[in-house]
Computed example of a mutant assay.
Amino acid sequence: MEIAWSLVLFTALTGCGGWLFAGVAIDEFAKKTSKANFTAGIVALVLMIVGGVASVTHLAHPENMLAALNHPTSGIFIEAVLVGIASAFIIVYLVAYNRNETVRRVCAVAGAVVGVALSFMAGHSYLMDAVYTWNTMLLPLAYLGTAAASGLSAYALVAAIRHNETTPADLKIAFILLAVGGVAAALTSLLYLTGVMDAADLMLVAVGAVAVGGIVPLACGIAGLKAANSALVLSVVATACALIGAICLRCAMWMAYVPLENFFGIAL
């Protein structure tokens, strides 16, 4: 099946933004990379907006988007609402950043929860009985895992940039999160792709999703804990690879499209 690039970008970018803001929420309590949080919030908001715009292009015409939003039970409606809510919490967080710590923390946690939920629901929307290779909970879990790697890598990158004049120990939590994201991406991508990868043309994107998108960020996270002076380079590599892996996983989903009718030789 032809890859729907607008949806690939939508899910990859908003997932990255949601998990990037999750890094902000975690540090609101850890208080290790606080210098990065305002900047990270801005980046997360931009990712949400750009990702949302990308999704609109899939519907070709504005009237199609409005029609889709008239159905509250549809995946498009749920995703649009989650993008809007997450963006609203991020905006309030940024406004309250230097004004009210309680409001800031509440918005950070709430925005992170919604953003993480969005990364899962973006994959859950594809679950349907008519498509054999999509109808598995491993798919939204893979969306969640790859988004975790890209978002937490991006948070480590912002932290490395903003903390370039502070002690390397401040970045430890960011690289722990990065390593955890790498594990999540590698495992969830492998589990999903193992079940659907029965064609040679999926091998390249499978390697991209598992090795490039998961194992490389994991290695960068571990290396960052031991060589914090290389934090900026490691986080750049991790972010780039995690995003590539997230895109590869989503491309693999479209390439592995197998409608149930294929098993019966009839059109359902």
Rank of each mutant, 00 (worst) to 15 (best):
Ala149Val: 03
Gly182Pro: 13
Ser189Gln: 08
Lys32Tyr: 10
Ala108Asp: 09
Ala54Tyr: 08
Gly182His: 09
Val56Asn: 06
Thr11Ser: 15
Ser150Met: 09
Asn135Phe: 07
Met253Glu: 13
Leu13Gln: 10
Val237Asn: 08
Ser74Ile: 02
Val81Ile: 14
Leu178Pro: 11
Val207Ile: 15
Ala154Met: 15
Leu66Cys: 00
Ala44Asp: 02
Ile49Ala: 12
Pro217Phe: 01
Val53Gln: 01
Val216Met: 08
Gly52Trp: 04
Ala130Ser: 12
Met137Ala: 04
Phe10His: 13
Leu152Ser: 07
Ala179Cys: 08
Ala80Met: 11
Ala149Ser: 15
Ala184Cys: 12
Leu20Val: 04
Ala223Ile: 01
Val106Tyr: 07
Ser189Lys: 05
Val46Lys: 03
Leu171Met: 10
Ala219Gly: 10
His124Ile: 01
Ala30Lys: 14
Gly51Met: 00
His163Gly: 01
Leu243Gly: 15
Arg250Glu: 10
Gly224Met: 00
Pro168Thr: 03
Ala68Tyr: 07
Phe175Asp: 03
Met203Gly: 08
Val106Gly: 00
Gly84Leu: 01
Ala142Ile: 05
Met197Ile: 01
Ser87His: 00
Thr166Pro: 06
Ile26Gly: 05
Ala159Pro: 11
Tyr93Arg: 15
Val81Gly: 07
Ile266Ser: 12
Thr73Trp: 10
Ala256Arg: 12
Ser153His: 08
Ala231Pro: 14
Thr14Leu: 05
Ser55Cys: 02
His71Glu: 13
Arg99Trp: 02
Ala246Ser: 15
Ala130Phe: 03
Ala117Thr: 15
Val8Asp: 09
Cys107Arg: 03
Gly265Pro: 02
Val8Gln: 05
Cys248His: 08
Val43Tyr: 11
Phe89Pro: 02
Ala88Leu: 14
Leu268Ile: 13
Ala169Thr: 12
Cys16Ala: 13
Ala154Lys: 07
Phe120Thr: 08
Ile90Val: 12
Met137Cys: 04
